[in-house]
Design a binder for these strands. Sequence first.
DNA 1: CAGGTC
DNA 2: CCTGG
Length: 284
Amino acid sequence: MIISSNHYVNLEATLFSGQCFRWISDPPWFYGVISNNLIKIREHPKGIEFFSTPTSETLLKDKIAEYFNLDENLDDIYSCINSDSRINTSIHLFQGMRILTQDPWECLISFICSSASNIKKIRRNIDSLTQYFGNKLYLDQQILNTFPTIQNIVEIDEDILRNLGLGYRSKYIKSTAQTILNQKIKIRTWENLNYQEGLDQLVYFKGIGDKIANCILLFSLNKKEAFPVDRWIEQILRNYYLTKSENKSLKTTASLRLWGMNHFGKYAGYANHYLFHYFRTQNK
DNA sequence: CAGGTC
DNA sequence: CCTGG
């Protein structure tokens, strides 16, 4: 099925810029899991074309459009954030790269896994989690798995997670799932929270600090003003944006994040992600 | 040391 | 603090 979009959708940049961790590329197709369905997708002159299983394309269409934020006006966003040469270059290099609206639970666990790690390892860790505790989905020659539920994670022993190579993150994954279950926290309702309420809720969990919380807000809770400050973004800000005195006074992740949110405005997260992807691919 | 956090 | 490139 084809879903039309008012702006080009750059699938490669969108799916492999570090906001999600388990899409597979088999040009021109990409395979991934959305809402417990295996999705096969490619770019199309009118937008995107996709197949799904087991749910029909018709029933899944809206969900896919939401995942890729297809109704978002990218030109409007670009004009809001395109205020300097670095952003401008990145926009031209990765025209059509979108910020996704992923499942918050999967996003949360994925970014707990991301702490002091690297993309390759994060992908391997999450892949292990889904292989051992998810359900298999088949399409063409691809086998992908659903993401384990909160209940699934609660039932897994911490040592098993450690054996999968998740290290010290294992106890954070366990305790987060346990807390959500025990306190009957409804993740569904998070999308109704504003930025600050969402941030407060997320950093409440052990293993989630300012950076990871902002990733979850940006990549799954539709908070485009969120501004995750990791080592890359911190270096970019310090090298290209901050004055000497700001470089001295801004020490914490949160203070840098507030500077970024203030400087780039309501689409700061888009500016963040374009800068992040640009510098990361440049320095490879 | 790595796309942090306690 | 785990793990691995």
